[in-house]
Design a protein around this nucleic acid. Sequence first.
DNA 1: CGACTTGTTGATGTACATCAAGGTACGTGG
DNA 2: CCACGTACCTTGATGTACATCAACAAGTCG
Lengths: 257, 257
Amino acid sequence: MGFQKKLTGVSVQLSRQQPCETCPFRSLKVFRDFTDKELEFVSGFKNGELIAEAGATLLLEGAMSPHIFTVLSGWGFRYKVLPDGRRQVLNFVMPGDIVGLQGSMLGEMQHSVEALSGMLLCVFERSCLWELFSKHPGLAFDVTWLSAREEQILDEHLLSVGRRTALERLAYLLLHIYTRADALGLVKANRMAFPFTQQLLADTLGLSLVHTNKTLRRLCERKLVRWKGRQFELLDQDALAEVAAYEPTETRLRPFI
Amino acid sequence: MGFQKKLTGVSVQLSRQQPCETCPFRSLKVFRDFTDKELEFVSGFKNGELIAEAGATLLLEGAMSPHIFTVLSGWGFRYKVLPDGRRQVLNFVMPGDIVGLQGSMLGEMQHSVEALSGMLLCVFERSCLWELFSKHPGLAFDVTWLSAREEQILDEHLLSVGRRTALERLAYLLLHIYTRADALGLVKANRMAFPFTQQLLADTLGLSLVHTNKTLRRLCERKLVRWKGRQFELLDQDALAEVAAYEPTETRLRPFI
DNA sequence: CGACTTGTTGATGTACATCAAGGTACGTGG
DNA sequence: CCACGTACCTTGATGTACATCAACAAGTCG
């Protein structure tokens, strides 16, 4: 029946600040370049860095967090839970994503965010959002762009959970994760580090753990994917897309803070 | 098996323009007041009005629409379809909502939008979005706010479809629709006009038509709601929320273009 | 010309048989 | 110990079939 919250000692610590000028993202080509003024602003805007270990809860449903984060490295996930503990994973959080924007715009957080692996995040004050909108329309536009992309991912996810079969759903999810990881350069020779448990995938797909396992096994038997330890390998992308009932849709990559 | 696209003659016509200064929304208290400058800009930004009859397709998946819309009156819905025709309704579109923002930010439309009743919409050029962000940070903020709220609704919907039972799902959806309608003043004495068919609800809930009908019947038998003709009546809000496994979450109402 | 009958269509209601997915139990392996 | 693998039985949801009901158009008759 769903999952159980493990109360891992979840220390979240502020680390020494590193300058945005040497931010590793600045060289990644999926992100756009900043103007000098923007860079200067973001540097000042930045409040510090956060190191979260796997299992740490970054944001909790119902809370009023005074911060917004930007992911530098590592994986996390957004999720909601029902009163009786049933959990639904909404989306994954990856480098370049903003965490906590929804809460900053609407008030109270309506979902939780947990670190899936060790994570490094930039911390910003939510109160600075307004200044960002007034003085840096380019950055404001980027924030909105990210919000629209998140919405688009949720749309597709909802289509999956609502209308795809278990096999299609899993195929689509794996493809989706793989594609996002690939865009960030996390894939080498069709392989990537895969920090997910099957329980987590089940809670993402809206399936039970057992059924997820059986379904995953089917994909492996068909030689579409390989999954061993914490490594994932995509064996036949086209066939997997076929199974997923997936219509390819290009999304232009655009920047972020 | 799902739905069949009815090819109603779907005329979409531009009507004579009415000034924003007398926009009926300006007096509704769920929306914030504009400054004079903002009002002036929006007036200039506005391209015309659109009258859509029920069944009209406002936006089609895969297209590159040069327009953004704002809903003045009527209901619509956003949806996606799989290659074999299975349909998933993502969310409903109501007065005050923006339609087509995602497509404007990301390029191609990744979902379709259809009018559920007769609708009246304001039309804007997507190319003006940039000017809006540069010159009117307050409006830009509102756009982002709306985007964040849409995301929040999708989160909750995804939780529903992924983890709630059929009965809980339907209860939640009815409550959600009712609440949104109420905020816009569309509810009188616990009653509201209800332009939905059961097929549409089924496609929203990720259920079959038959099962949706049975589930709806159960809610009626328990005297939680009444549904007759095109009228919906909420009989017991607390009990319905109880069935929905619903945790109340206040969202401050905020403006829009 | 108006009133009544008939046919059509789309939405709703209900009864099955079937199946995809769930839940429990009990393995293994790192 | 926790994540993964598999078997077995149960159940919630599906698909098909068919009946009902209201809205509407066409045709008929007094």
